[in-house]
Design a protein around this nucleic acid. Structure first.
Lengths: 124, 124
DNA sequence: CCTACATATGAACAGTTGCTCATATGTTCA
DNA sequence: TGAACATATGAGCAACTGTTCATATGTAGG
């Protein structure tokens, strides 16, 4: 569909304006990819868990009650999305949360969902 | 899997702590549902478009270059997720953005993605 | 080097999702 | 009421996603 379609729009001014705004937003695919990462409960749990400190893969899968393989796959995805980082120490690989923005995203999302967040103390 | 699994964790303290934090987060499914809404490029485009003002279904589908049916389906989803509201005027149904938090979520997400946002003027 | 352990990875399969197509519902006006 | 238009909705299908299972890679100790 070409923009010419807009000439026949029911509300041409609004449509034209909207189209211009939309055209400036060229990051939509990447935005979607980020939200896709956050859209899976397992990955969300991984992130929530890692927010409280680093953990190795085996412990992460124990905490989440999921197979090592499942967790490892998801960690790989999260890593390529740059939401976590990993550090190898001996036989273990430790993962930790790594994104300042996502912290804020969680806060806002939880407000939408209607729940307090971070009301507990996380330091030992 | 029971929490007893954690007794044999490689890093028991960290695992136990993480488990406690995780258990407090009982909104994960709902969080995931919200992000799922934001994870689709079409829905993102719809939201971005509506941020600049209300639009009727037909114009929205013209602006986005997608079928009326596809847009209508997505609008129904967005509406049930409370991200947009609709108002019927005559034969048309106008949709408009309706969530303060999502505005902030977008801002943070775009920063993660590494792009400025809202550098244009949206008022006429 | 060999074994045990920790993690990564590929293939395959089931469940989910977003579109299209056809059609239903609802509105305006003659 | 009937015709034309605007929107909503259900079924069906192709594409995508997250898990499991099997196996590969990598590391430390004996």
């Amino acid at each position: 569909m070409s923009q010419l379609e807009l000439a026949g729009a029911h509300h041409p001014e609004a449509a034209k304006h909207a189209k211009e705004i939309l055209d400036e937003q060229d990051q939509i695919e990447e935005l979607g990819d980020l939200f896709k990462m956050l859209a899976d409960p397992t990955r969300l749990r991984v992130l929530m868990t890692l927010k409280s400190g680093e953990l190795c893969v085996a412990d992460l899968s124990a905490v989440l009650g999921m197979s090592q393989s499942a967790i490892s796959h998801q960690l790989a995805d999260l890593k390529s999305a740059r939401l976590v980082k990993s550090e190898k120490r001996g036989k273990h690989v430790f993962y930790h949360f790594d994104d300042a923005h996502v912290e804020t995203i969680f806060l806002q999302a939880l407000e939408h969902v209607g729940e307090r967040y971070g009301t507990h103390r996380t330091d030992d």
